[in-house]
Design a protein around this nucleic acid. Structure first.
Lengths: 186, 186, 186, 186
DNA sequence: GATGAATGAGAATTCATTCAT
DNA sequence: TATGAATGAATTCTCATTCAT
């Protein structure tokens, strides 16, 4: 038997409540866009009372920032970790092409969510710092010179943007020749 | 019998006013984003009565579509026309780099407006067709093979997106070496 | 028969609507205090939809300011006009005493309303300018030297404040001896 | 067996904390007015958990009443005690004038706090009894006849009200001549 | 005893949209 | 044809209050 807590700080009835709300917010944004992110919609999606959402988040910006941060943290190492074995197997261009296929084919909803949040910051400079790390610049940096990495970053950004905006998938075999043109440098 | 109006839609008798409203709508979106596009804000910006805005536009979507269409039509040939003499003078990579400088340095507000409208269609497929032509795919097509044009399209898209999202300018001397890597194919 | 309006600017269905709302607001404040002044309460009291109140008044401050201004304008000359004949008949002290009786006995609700609005500005400097004219300073000025007028102003203020706060009436015969002590200067 | 608590009301075991909360409440009211008195604001100001405030005070009215009572008790004898030596030194009019200077110049924040609480009872008769003693009636009574004391009470009330509402200070030399007119009776 | 999580009841505000004139 | 008054539906946000722990 365990010792009683000296001062039981009052644990929440529903410890995951806050996190559940964020997940629901992410779902709402993923499905209907940032415009649809209302406390009501989130409360419904999370199946918590409206008051719960405003209890945990001071205002809508707070909810949005928390959502962005959570999504970002969850996927922080994602690209890097995905890329490493792919590059080992297929080389840089092939690895990046495989990465593009992975996220545009198999993780498309996730990609839309992330880009939705990213693009939502266009007219909200206050949120900008939350998404600073989301640029593609750095993704290829470990594998080539900086100039090439930067160019690859722009290109990948353009590819993913188009995938999201036009709702199309890109397969590795389709993308690799283009990227090879950049990485081969000839 | 008079020729039927090409557009069946109600077209009241003061096209100038209609246009003024659209200009105002574009200004509102440019400055404060699509979220800020309200009939009231537009009426104020256009200095027309509120009723005018709802009279000339069936609903908000109608206003938004009309605005997008107008902006697009105005800038339809823009990229192509800008590019032609630049390519003649500096070659393809140099021309494209000059184009990037032109739009990110001297036409940045315009760029933000267009991208803002473009990105606003992410979760509104209905508006997608209005902005279909805005993709960079075709811009280099007259000057190189399709594969290269496509790659250049993605890269340019990535560059412009970053310029808009991060509020940075790109100068030709900075961009040209990267694009040359693609166009030179070596 | 009258000429038709060249451009009938669209008259309101209910031309007195705005004023009716202000009256209702005054009633709410009079009865339940400034704290009870909510758009809801006013809408109910005025028997108009909630949206009407927010249509005519940008925000609560606007409603409050408009109410204060209306009340003030309505009673602007009140004290001065009431006082003149009373002073002519009873002299200064007698006239002021009669004025005190008038407002604390026969116009008590009105007095409470005005003081309620006046006191509500304590922590709202923005409203202060609206009630600047409400001080008693000037009420006796036409009838005596400035120093005496100022003193009378303070005393009257104290009397009326007490009437309002303690819900008591003051009769002329009760008040006149005190005021006479001031006006007689001996 | 122990003596019964004078007050039947629940009286938990940390009176110091209770007092801290009241002090914080007074500070909140002093700075932002009675409207700003919320449990949260008080908890923050007192640096106690939110639950403490609702634990020690049944509801908001309880907190407000307790605050008023504490403030009043603290300053109960204040005016009387301040006045005594001042009258001894300067006479009645001079002493009262010095008192006015003291509270409007050196104790102005305190004055605003007290008047703020006093005025807040206008539409809350339930709180009225807590502040009954705050009237100026009695302050001069020990030094002159009742009629004069009453008149001085009104005048002082008017002066202090104006000081609070208009945020002005009154200096003894400014006020004394007026009060002398009353006390000298000539 | 003490606390902070939880919630429902407002409250202000915004706005697309309708419609009488 | 044109307009602005009018309104309902949302939405954000605030808080007193309750109550499980």
């Amino acid at each position: 038997m365990s010792l009683p807590q000296t001062r039981a700080k009052r644990r929440p009835n529903d410890p995951a409540r806050r996190q559940r709300i964020i997940e629901a917010a992410a779902r709402v944004v993923a499905e209907h866009g940032v415009d649809a992110l209302t406390f009501r919609a989130v409360a419904d999606a999370a199946k918590v009372p409206l008051g719960s959402t405003t209890y945990y988040f001071a205002d809508k910006d707070d909810l949005l920032v928390s959502t962005i941060r959570t999504i970002r943290e969850r996927n922080e190492k994602s690209f890097h970790d995905l890329l490493q074995p792919l590059v080992a197997e297929h080389g840089l261009a092939g690895g990046l092409a495989a990465l593009v296929e992975e996220v545009t084919v198999r993780q498309h909803p996730q990609l839309i969510l992330e880009y939705g949040l990213y693009l939502s910051t266009l007219h909200r400079p206050a949120l900008r710092k939350e998404i600073a790390q989301w640029r593609m610049d750095a993704v290829a940096r470990p594998y080539c010179d900086d100039q090439t990495a930067r160019l690859l970053g722009f290109t990948l950004e353009g590819i993913l943007l188009q995938s999201v905006m036009e709702d199309v998938m890109f397969f590795a075999t389709d993308v690799e020749p283009m990227l090879a043109k950049i990485t081969d440098g000839k």
